[in-house]
Amino acid sequence: MNAPTEQPARLTVATCSLAGCFGCHMSFLDVDERIVELAQLVTFDRSPLTDVKHCSERVDVGLIEGGLCNVENVEVLREFRASCRYLVAVGSCAITGGVPAVRNKFTLESCLREAYIDAPGIDNPHIPCDPEIPLLLNKVRPIHEVVRVDYVLPGCPPPAEAFWELLTALIAGREPELAYEHRRFD
């Protein structure tokens, strides 16, 4: 992979959740008090943690949780890719589609019918069609099918140690190396 060559003064880090459950973000926060140390080493850019809505022009590391289930996910992902030096697929959903991709076995129509028309207790059954709602993709996809991905953190979710190793390695300008127990889960 593209190993970091020059070491920037202070890394900027952006994160976002696409079709994910925020479990990966929660696991990131399990670095606990080390978050204070981290905050001194990096600047957080766009992230649900900062509530910043768009990436700055140049971000060093972008962490993506979740796969792609709708058009908005694709747009956000493309913005991330364009802004970030290193893009990291975080967790099963980003890497493989994960739980949301379970719907890939069915047609989109049968999923929507099940949720909005056939389910018990629905009044005014119809498939929502508000232009505010992003169009759903035919199939849920992992992010590497749409943009280049530089690193992956496997797991559902990856353990806090994996986030810590990734970021401290990139800060120090070395290749991250995940210990066996931080990438194997059975």
């Binding site: 058009v71 694709v74 069609c129 759903l136 993709l137 035919n138 943009v147």
Partner: peptide, 18 residues
């Protein structure tokens, strides 16, 4: 990418008419 956004939303376009 082996991905075409327009071709990936044919089903939801058909379902919503959008």
């Amino acid at each position: 990418p082996d991905f075409d956004l327009d071709a990936s939303v044919t089903e939801s376009r058909a379902l919503t008419g959008r």
